[in-house]
Write a protein that binds this DNA or RNA. Structure first.
Lengths: 191, 191
DNA sequence: CGTCTATTTGAATGTACTCAAAAGCGGTGG
DNA sequence: CCACCGCTTTTGAGTACATTCAAATAGACG
């Protein structure tokens, strides 16, 4: 059944009884996003948290002169949103688009708050989710500060081999903070 | 009383009754760290989470050829640890040292786990703490990817005016990911 | 097949680094 | 209280890493 994936994801950290499963799943809304479509545009108020059931999404920031900076990729079994804006009910700073046809499962901010109030176990679940996100971002910062572009690229390939297959080099370059041209030259000199 | 500060910090997000206050404070250990002393060295297993009562600390990564990368500064009312290693009971990847004489309050991993088990409200507290840490790091990544060194420096001054007064330029440079020499030249050209 | 975008290549440029030396500053001991 | 020491900050010259721009090639998709 379609909820199996997300329930397995939740079960990694907390154990729900039948009622809680029903309540939780009743709050979810499934949605298909076709390749290239936007889930979130800058200045839309970001009202949903999404779990990726299948497909691949990319969150990016659009800077001056149209320069894109990829914040994260989200493939199957990842959660994605503009977290800051979601939590604070603010207009988004980022864009989220489908890299390929995706099937996602959304929780609105309203339902998110209700869920935490009704089933406090989810405080634990989201604590762990946030924890993992925090430590992941911190590691990324350390690497951005301490490693060369080539090392960062090697690292990316090693850490996210699945993602590396699903996205373009241009997108990887914007995740690493370099130009596609430079990534191309790094690849040429790799071996 | 010395627990007032940390209790006020906790009270920002959750409300404790008398018993919970007593239980929580019974788990804390206060400690003085003199200027220049290390709280955590690379490869020590990171077993404590610290709340800064007064003073200033710095967490940094030591890369190849001795290059330091500052991960975060922690002044009064901040929490600090090597979060990844703390949560997973691993040897630290980072160093934490006192920039000035500091008075901190520590929670061991064991007590941290007990606290979450005994007083589930703290799941909420730490969820919000992790959330804030995550969104802060994410914003830092966006800025690192999209802004010039000068913009990042201006931003730092604006966002952390107190910290900027307590730390050296060399330390700020290592937080921004540039050399002290280059920061110096940025400052010369500021106005 | 034609169009659009991604990738590669190379030359010129700019941003940030390295190295070295001088100047400034804070703390310590005589 | 001053002189000295160690560390930070500044300055400048030379260099390396990464970008921009332009053009050619390759791939993806209708």
């Amino acid at each position: 059944m379609k909820n199996d994936l997300i329930l397995a994801n939740v079960a990694k950290h907390i154990t729900l009884d039948q009622d809680e499963v029903h309540y939780f799943t009743s709050l979810l809304k499934y949605r298909e996003v076709e390749k290239g479509a936007s889930l979130l545009k800058e200045e839309d108020v970001c009202t949903t948290l999404s779990y990726v059931h299948s497909g691949a999404l990319r969150a990016y920031y659009l800077g001056k002169y149209g320069k894109e900076s990829t914040i994260m990729f989200a493939i199957a079994d990842w959660w994605v949103t503009d977290m800051y804006c979601f939590l604070n009910c603010l207009p988004a700073m980022t864009y989220i688009e489908a890299i390929e046809e995706s099937y996602i499962c959304q929780l609105s901010k309203e339902h998110f708050d209700q869920l935490l109030a009704e089933v406090p176990k989810f405080e634990r679940f989201f604590r762990i989710l946030m924890q993992n996100a925090y430590t992941r971002e911190q590691l990324r910062i350390i690497q951005n500060l301490s490693q060369s572009a080539e090392e960062r690229y090697r690292n990316f390939l090693q850490k996210y081999p699945l993602i590396a297959q699903q996205v373009t080099q241009k997108q990887i370059a914007s995740y690493l903070g370099i130009t596609p041209e430079f990534l191309s030259s790094i690849r040429k000199n790799l071996n």
